[in-house]
Amino acid sequence: MRPLTDEEMKTVLDKLANYMSDLKSLIAPLEDGDRYVMRLNHSRVYYVKLSIANLATSISRDALLSLGTCLGKMTKSGKFRLHITALPIIASGARHKIWVKDNGAQPFLYGSNVVKAHVGRWSEDCPEHQGCVIYSMSDVPLGFGVTARSTTEARRLDPTGIVCFRQADCGEYLRDEDTLFAG
C-alpha cells in the first residue's frame, strides 16, 4: 500500500471530475482533525481516512485485501477505471443527474443503457458524453454512466433512443461479485 504519485492522482481526480462538481469536499479536513487520503494497493485505489491508512501499514501488502472505499482500478496503460463501489462518493457531489422511472430501474440494474422512455427527469444543460449519476425516482443512486445526447437533443429523441450509456450499476455487486474486490 502506498500513496498515489503526482500523475496517478491527476488521472484519478480527472476521472472523478467527470461526474462530480465539487472535488474539494473529497479532501476537506474532518471535524476530528482527520482527513481522507487515497492509497494504492494491488493497482486499486482506495479512499480512506488517514488514521485508518496509518493503521493499515501494520499489515503486509499481500495480506491486505481492502481498506476504506475502493474507488476503482488503475489499468496497466495508466488509465483509471471507476468501480461501482465509488458510487456513494460520486453521488454525494454529482454534477449531472438522470432519474429513471420504476419501469426503467430494473433494465438498468441488469446492465442495459438508459433509454428515453425510462427517463423520469434529467438535469438541464447537460452536454453530450458527460458523466452523470443515475437515480431512481425515490432519489436512490443506482449507478452512473455517460450521456449519449445533450439534453436538448435528447428531447427530440424517439422513446427507444439511448440517452445514457451505462458505466456501472448496482447490479454489479451481484454480477461481478467474484472480481469486484479481488482479482
Binding site: 502506498r2 500513496p3 498515489l4 504519485t5 503526482d6 492522482m9 491527476k10 481526480l13 480527472d14 471530475a17 467527470n18 472535488l23 474539494k24 473529497l26 479532501i27 479536513p29 482527513r35 487520503v37
Partner: peptide, 22 residues
C-alpha cells in the same frame, strides 16, 4: 523512485488544477 503526493497542499493544488481544466 516515485514522488508521492500525500500532503494536503499538493493534493489541493492538483485538485484545483484538474477541476479548472474540467
Amino acid at each position: 523512485g516515485k514522488v508521492f503526493v500525500d500532503d494536503r497542499e499538493s493534493m489541493t493544488t492538483i485538485l484545483a488544477l484538474v477541476q479548472a481544466e474540467k
